[in-house]
Simulated scan of single mutants.
Amino acid sequence: MSRSLLNTLFDYKAWANVELFDVLSTVTSETDLHTAIRTMNHIYVVDRIFRAHLLGEAHGYEASNTRTTPTLEELRAAVQETDAWYQQYVSSLDEDALAAGIRFRFTDGDSGLMSREEILMHVITHGGYHRGNVGQVLKNIAINPPRDILTKFLHASEPQRRLV
Rank of each mutant, 00 (worst) to 15 (best):
S111V: 04
I102C: 07
R147N: 13
Y61Q: 06
E57D: 12
N140G: 15
N140V: 03
V123C: 05
L55R: 14
D94P: 02
T68M: 10
S111G: 08
V79A: 08
G112R: 08
A142P: 00
H122W: 08
T71W: 06
H59V: 03
Y129S: 07
F104Q: 04
T82E: 15
F104H: 10
A52H: 10
S92W: 00
G109I: 00
A78R: 15
Y89L: 01
G60A: 06
G60C: 07
E62A: 12
W85G: 02
R131Q: 12
L113Y: 13
G56I: 05
G112L: 02
T71P: 07
N140E: 12
F106P: 00
I119W: 03
I119V: 14
E73H: 05
G135E: 04
I119M: 07
H122Y: 14
L113S: 13
N144I: 02
Y61L: 02
L98D: 04
G101V: 08
L54H: 03
S111I: 01
E74H: 11
G101T: 11
T71S: 15
V134R: 01
P145S: 09
N140F: 02
A100P: 00
G60T: 10
S92A: 14
N144R: 12
D110V: 01
T71V: 05
V134C: 05
D94Y: 03
G132S: 10
Q88D: 14
M121K: 09
S91N: 11
P145F: 04
G135R: 05
A100S: 14
N65I: 12
V79L: 01
H53W: 10
N140T: 10
Q87N: 12
V134N: 04
L138F: 07
E95D: 15
H59T: 05
R147L: 12
